[in-house]
């Protein structure tokens, strides 16, 4: 339980860092850290297969997408960054306060789980569920990936006639 608590606090701090970081690149890295901590939490919640996906896709692929997108856009100059971050600090320092207040409120209210929790006893294999029970989701994913690949062809191609 203590380890879980430490992990959860780490996850929240990393997310907070991702929101409040000055440069976009640092924010993307903080997001990767959040995702890595989520991976460990998933592993501790007895879901190793999903944890592997989270690690490879969210920590790896999505960070790569973010970093390449950020590096393709022109970073701000140093003076602009400082001006922005002062402004930003004023806008963002409420966030940790709000989060702590919300957590304290939830803790004090002791929101109860007021329904009987079902206990599913059949220990089934993930692969079996994915390919037999949830086959429809797999087909849905195929269509989604097809649509996404058309989107990438359309959106990432440098436009021949420059609109600006």
């Amino acid at each position: 339980m203590t380890i879980d608590l430490i992990l959860l606090v780490m996850m929240t701090i990393a997310a907070l860092w991702a929101v409040m970081a000055r440069s976009l690149l640092k924010a993307a890295i903080a997001l990767a850290v959040t995702s890595a901590v989520v991976t460990i939490i998933m592993f501790r919640l007895a879901s190793p297969l999903a944890a592997v996906f989270e690690l490879s896709v969210c920590t790896g692929l999505i960070t790569a997408i973010f970093v390449s997108a950020i590096s393709l856009t022109r970073p701000l100059t140093h003076a602009q960054t400082i001006a922005m971050s002062k402004n930003k600090f004023r806008r963002y320092w409420y966030l940790p306060v709000i989060m702590v207040i919300a957590a304290a409120a939830l803790f004090l209210l002791k929101i109860k789980v007021d329904v009987p929790l079902p206990q599913v006893l059949a220990i089934d294999d993930v692969r079996n569920i994915m390919w037999n029970l949830r086959q429809l989701d797999m087909y849905g994913q195929i269509v989604l990936i097809l649509a996404g690949s058309f989107g990438i062809v359309i959106l990432f191609r440098e436009s021949d006639k420059d609109g600006s």
Partner: peptide
């Protein structure tokens, strides 16, 4: 599954809106 298909329709719609960029 409803959620999966909602995303399929939505992603296709996003891209169709931007077809002329």
């Amino acid at each position: 599954s409803l959620y999966v298909f909602l995303e399929v329709a939505a992603v296709s719609a996003f891209i169709m809106i931007t077809i002329n960029k």
